[in-house]
Nucleic acid binder design. Sequence first.
DNA 1: AACTTTGAAAACAAAAAAAGTTTTCAAGAT
DNA 2: ATCTTGAAAACTTTTTTTGTTTTCAAAGTT
Lengths: 205, 205
Amino acid sequence: MSLTPTHIHTVRDLFFRYGLKSMTMDELARQLGCSKKTIYEHYADKKVLVHAVLGGFLNEHRNEMAALDQNPDNAIAKLIRMAAIGFQKMRNLTPTILFDLQKSYPELWMELERYRKEEIVEIFKRLIERGQHEGLIRKEIDPSVVSIIHLQHTNLLLDPVVFSHLDRPLATIFHNIMEVFVGGITTPQGLEVWNTTKAQMNLQP
Amino acid sequence: MSLTPTHIHTVRDLFFRYGLKSMTMDELARQLGCSKKTIYEHYADKKVLVHAVLGGFLNEHRNEMAALDQNPDNAIAKLIRMAAIGFQKMRNLTPTILFDLQKSYPELWMELERYRKEEIVEIFKRLIERGQHEGLIRKEIDPSVVSIIHLQHTNLLLDPVVFSHLDRPLATIFHNIMEVFVGGITTPQGLEVWNTTKAQMNLQP
DNA sequence: AACTTTGAAAACAAAAAAAGTTTTCAAGAT
DNA sequence: ATCTTGAAAACTTTTTTTGTTTTCAAAGTT
């Protein structure tokens, strides 16, 4: 048996839904309808499997970001689209899986942290700089500082204490965060772009 | 040290957030800022602790139901309020904790199932009968059948596949479910009651 | 029709982790 | 000064999980 992409996607679902600890290899095999032997033929051990699944998740995001980076939108529009994708992906990261990652796969956890703190922040920093050249973002804004602020905004979604008791759709929370953030960094011209972009946007993909 | 109600509430939070398996006794002690010894002075073993926490959760619900049952509302209003509380409580039950319960504490899982399938369904059945006597619910409705339908409605909230991809607030989902359910069982007079009750209701407590 | 191959299912050993117990020790109470 | 308390940490025991191996039956092959 060959463990198709569909299978690996099922594994991701299970890991994300029940956490890495609760989802044992036996349970995984049972849910996939295959034997453990088959899993171990494709993945040396559980750690490799977990890395493959989360690495895939991260790569997906990396690719989406790269694709967006290609297109010829203005900086503000890009920034918003990228943020939307980031927020959308965040919601899959439940407290359980984050907890299990930190505890049992610290290297992978650090890799995810690094990805966010370095790669993503770097992309946003460059976007903000571009926005400044385009005259859409105010010159007083320090791109390094502000891109970290954005990272912290996305972090808020991971903390169940912050917004979840409000019982608002992610779209609403996203919208408000962007309203503050974009409003806070744009020139009058940039604000116009934000208003038109906003009108076109559809957060649920 | 005495493990105050605050502490036990923290334990509940941790169990609900991270699941029963990921939350080990060591981790629990660490988070509570006490020693395992202290925990074991109050609870013979982890099973007892888990039972205490989830028993408390269930009892809370039982008491809220009993309190509502006392007040002199009409059957429709009661039914809606009770449903609202039930839905509200449901959202705490993440896939992880349900999975861990079924796997590691099957007796407790069965007790929760029994509570919902017997006690709660019984309460709703009686309410529907009362509603029929009050002329608010149609006589063709079979209380036994319809109270089970309601149970199944609440079950839908536990399945992450059903509604969560919609990214709607619980309040919206609740409202729609009740719109269908109440609309489906009421007499014209009952429908009026539902419309006025609806206006007063505030789902976020 | 005998013979391979395949892979699920189950049994297994080895390793890891968690439960539960005991010891240590320092801070506060008596 | 002595006693008590309980966190912290060390420790043992039990349980769970991992990862491997074996069994066996169904499907395909010659």
